[in-house]
Design a binder for these strands. Structure first.
Lengths: 223, 223
DNA sequence: TGAAGACTTGACCAAACGGTCAAGATGATA
DNA sequence: TATCATCTTGACCGTTTGGTCAAGTCTTCA
């Protein structure tokens, strides 16, 4: 019942490979939009152009599809945090991390929403992954932040809280896209809006850590 | 089909008043945990100790219960933002707003999760409320922030982005409670953790706006 | 080319769900 | 206490949904 971070089974035929990924793709679209309960196998089938029976030939159950989707997204979803490099400059690294997270929210909002849905409901199916993989990753990267603090490159701040606030702000643009669109008429798909969003988050985070805003590229007018 | 902010119908009998609020209470618990599709009338019935048929005596349908829950929560949920006072000091006001939002996330996490669930799925049932009430509220309060900026009391910042980041960070503690609990073992229910969370968010926001942290009360050791 | 295995599908099933209804229990009122 | 409206419930219904199955089609490869 638990999602594994492991790699997909090998030795699949061409057809299997193609169809499984089509199902995962369609499943992601549906599950992220309607949640687990709100999604039916039939709807996934329609969205992939396959028959319901055929989905159940490739995956033994609805839950199996869901877990495959989750596992498929997990690695790419956690990649940005993995990239945090202790040997580089904290301002550069944090800005780069925020950039990656905003990029993810802009380009793969469904992935963000899928996790939001899952966690919101108590993370019943990814609890194990979170307790193991994610927890150790967060601890490792917290240590990176503490390392910077020890070196005097960063003001003292609770590393875990810092990570939470970055997650919160960046993922908010994907998870609450509907609300943002209603209130501003825009989404991260709009380049200007995306720039504003990234700049605001970066500004809050860097200043919150006592770092200077190094304005990479152009950032329009803020003052 | 649309939720109204209006006040509950009057002229209800004692029994109606009591049972309707019991149903709304139970509905909030279930809907916020499992989303609309994941919640059954039967489950709400069990959680309130009433029969399924009886719920349908008080509310004509599952959707009607859901909308009643949403309407019931909406006012209290938006109250903190309404309190933002243009005539007071921005640092005080922003800190107070964050304090209220954190308090809400700590004391009524289900309310936060209910909205998160709803917005995540495209806000199909509160779209109108958001387009009208929420949008005008946000515009009004954006103007307050611009007012502060004009007076030179606040650094230039996009007001809407600022509001979004505050929502994102404060609500994150409620919406992602499960994840936070897995990673830290704590929730906002823990006074120390709550203090850390509030301090981190306040610090990021105030510094992000070029304001000084006025450390109200005690705030432990951060340096 | 033909047989074996892989793939695909429509018909079907049982359980769960939202909602109706008629009949009975309870409360208010005179 | 008698009467009437309110309240409560279990039995029931049609639909939806996850999942099975047997039968048919397409690939692959000797």
């Amino acid at each position: 019942m638990t999602v594994r971070t492991g790699h997909p089974a090998k030795g699949l035929s061409r057809i299997q490979e193609r169809n499984r990924s089509r199902i995962i793709e369609g499943g992601l679209a549906e599950f992220s939009r309607f949640g687990y309960s709100g999604t039916t196998i039939e709807k996934i089938a329609v969205s992939t152009g396959m028959s319901k029976s055929n989905l159940l030939y490739y995956f033994s159950s609805k839950a199996a599809i869901y877990e495959a989707v989750l596992a498929h997204i997990l690695d790419v979803w956690l990649a940005p945090l993995r990239g945090l490099d202790p040997d580089k400059d904290p301002a550069t690294e944090l800005a780069a991390y925020i950039h990656q997270k905003i990029k993810m929210s802009a380009e793969r909002p469904e992935a963000s929403r899928l996790f939001a849905n899952e966690v919101l409901q108590g993370a019943p199916r990814i609890q194990r992954v979170m307790e193991e993989d994610l927890k150790s990753l967060v601890e490792e990267k917290s240590e990176v932040i503490r390392h910077w603090i020890r070196l005097g490159k960063l003001e003292a701040i609770d590393p875990v809280q810092l990570i939470f606030t970055i997650w919160a702000m960046t993922q908010h643009y994907a998870d609450f896209q509907t609300q943002i669109q209603i209130l501003t008429g825009k989404t991260l798909g709009d380049p200007d809006f995306r720039k504003d969003a990234e700049m605001t988050v970066t500004r809050l985070v860097l200043r919150g850590c006592g770092l200077e805003l190094k304005d990479g590229a152009d950032q329009g007018d803020a003052a």
